[in-house]
Computed example of a mutant assay.
Amino acid sequence: MEQPSCASKKFFGMNTEIECKLFGEHAKEAMQAIQLELHLLENLWSRYLPSSDIGKINTAAGKEFVTVAPETFALLSQAKSFSKLSEGVFNVMVGPLVDLWDYKHAVRPPTRSMVKKVLPLTDPDDLVLTADSSRVGLRKLGQSIDVGGIAKGCATDYCVGILDAYGISSAFINIGGNVVVRGTKPEGNPWKVGIRHPRKPDSMLGVLDACNTSIVTSGDYERFFIGPKGKRWHHILDSTTGYPVQSAFSSVTVVYGNSLVADALSTLLFMSGIETGLEILSRFPGAEAVFADSRLCVLITPNLVSKFHIAEPMELSVVKRKEKNEKHNKKKE
Rank of each mutant, 00 (worst) to 15 (best):
I175R: 02
N189F: 10
R135V: 09
V181D: 03
T184Q: 14
A165F: 07
R135Q: 15
G148W: 02
P198S: 07
Q143A: 00
W191K: 01
V160R: 14
L127K: 00
F172S: 06
T156V: 15
V136R: 00
D126P: 03
K185F: 07
A151R: 01
G176V: 11
P186Q: 11
C154F: 15
I145R: 01
Q143P: 01
R196Y: 04
T156R: 04
D123F: 03
L163W: 11
S144T: 00
S134A: 13
S170Y: 04
A155F: 14
L163Y: 12
R199K: 13
I145G: 00
S144Y: 00
V136C: 01
I173P: 05
A171C: 10
V128N: 05
P201V: 08
I175M: 08
L163F: 15
L129F: 03
D157H: 06
P198D: 09
D132V: 10
K192T: 09
P186I: 09
D146G: 00
V160Y: 15
S170L: 06
G137H: 08
G148H: 04
D146Y: 01
N212T: 09
R139L: 15
E187S: 11
D132P: 07
C211I: 13
D164P: 07
A210P: 11
K192R: 15
C154S: 13
V147F: 00
F172T: 04
H197W: 05
S134F: 13
R135E: 15
G183Y: 05
C154I: 11
V147Y: 00
R182Y: 11
M204S: 14
D202K: 14
A165D: 14
E187H: 11
V128E: 12
P201I: 09
L129C: 04
P186M: 09
R182C: 13
K200P: 06
G188Q: 10
G188P: 09
E187R: 12
I175S: 04
G153S: 02
G167K: 09
Q143F: 01
S169M: 10
A155T: 08
K152A: 01
L141C: 06
K200G: 07
S144H: 00
C159I: 12
A131H: 13
I162L: 13
S203K: 15
G148I: 06
T156S: 15
N212R: 07
A165L: 12
N212M: 10
L138E: 00
V180Q: 14
G149S: 04
N178P: 02
H197L: 05
I195L: 15
G153V: 01
Q143I: 01
R196L: 14
G161H: 05
A155L: 12
A165T: 13
I168F: 08
